[in-house]
Computed example of a mutant assay.
Amino acid sequence: MALVNSNYEFIFVDVGKNGRLSDGGVIESTEFYHKLMNGQLNLPDNSFTDNNLNFVFLGDDAFPLQEHFLKPYPQRDLSYENRIFNYRLSRARNVSENAFGLIAARFRILHVPIHMRYPENISYVVLAICSLHNFLRKRDTSYSTSASFDQENMATRELQLGEWRKNTAEMTNLRSFRRTATTAAKDNRNNYRDFFNSDGSVDWQDEMLAKGKA
């Protein structure tokens, strides 16, 4: 379980949870989640944004909707405005998928079961890979280029797949985690939806929806 910033770098990594847990179950057992729920992450106040929006983390449908954690609207009976939100969220979340894809393409040990005399040391191998990835992202221009990652072609409005996808197996889908969201969490998602459909809109989002991107 990891958090990724906009530069494809890992800013929090938790390794070693039981694989039988759902992804929502994994995140609930992390120090990050406990601090998020207890208001201990020192997130900036809403007043730091022009539209008084919450500072949030982004996830997919496998995770619970929270006041500071956004996930997509359910696919059933989506309104146009909700489709815009899902597209914008998916576009931002693509950063984390590309970060995971790149380390899988560069560090081939992640393609096979890791056999070690002391299984607990496997966690250190994964953490070392994430640290090396961050170091190389900052210091080695040959480690990754703009072509390494998925990009939207602004001329054709088409998605150009990153080079890492040619060198790694398809990533496993996350297992969903179902929990009833609070009214505050739903209102926060609606506020972002309204923002993406008004002041925060981008000129290509309607074209991308017309091409079936959300």
Rank of each mutant, 00 (worst) to 15 (best):
R157M: 12
V112K: 15
R88V: 01
L132F: 13
P64T: 09
A105W: 07
K138I: 13
S79I: 01
E97V: 09
P119D: 11
D50R: 11
L43K: 04
N153I: 04
L70R: 05
F69H: 09
F48K: 13
A128P: 08
V95F: 03
F55I: 05
N46V: 12
R108K: 15
Y87W: 02
E152F: 14
L132E: 04
L127H: 08
N121C: 13
D140Y: 08
G59D: 14
D45C: 15
L127S: 08
Y87C: 08
L159F: 14
S79P: 00
R93N: 08
Q40F: 05
A128V: 07
I109R: 05
Q151H: 09
R93F: 08
Q40Y: 11
L161C: 08
R91K: 07
N94H: 07
L78C: 09
L161H: 10
F55D: 08
R139K: 14
L89T: 02
H115N: 06
L161P: 01
A155K: 12
T49R: 07
N51W: 06
S79L: 10
F57T: 12
L159E: 01
I122R: 06
G101M: 13
S131Y: 15
F149R: 04
G162Q: 13
S123G: 01
V56Y: 06
F69I: 04
E152V: 15
A104L: 08
R93D: 02
W164Y: 11
L43V: 09
R83F: 03
T141H: 10
Y118M: 08
V95I: 15
A147G: 01
A92F: 03
G162Y: 11
P72A: 01
T145D: 11
P72S: 06
R117V: 07
E97G: 01
P74R: 00
Q160F: 03
N94D: 00
D77L: 02
G101K: 12
R91I: 04
D140G: 02
D140C: 09
E81R: 14
C130F: 07
L127T: 03
Y73K: 02
E67G: 00
I114N: 06
F63E: 14
D60I: 10
P119Y: 11
A92N: 02
L43E: 11
I129N: 06
Y87D: 01
D150S: 09
F100G: 04
Q75V: 06
Y80H: 15
D50W: 00
H115K: 13
Q40N: 14
V126K: 12
I129T: 03
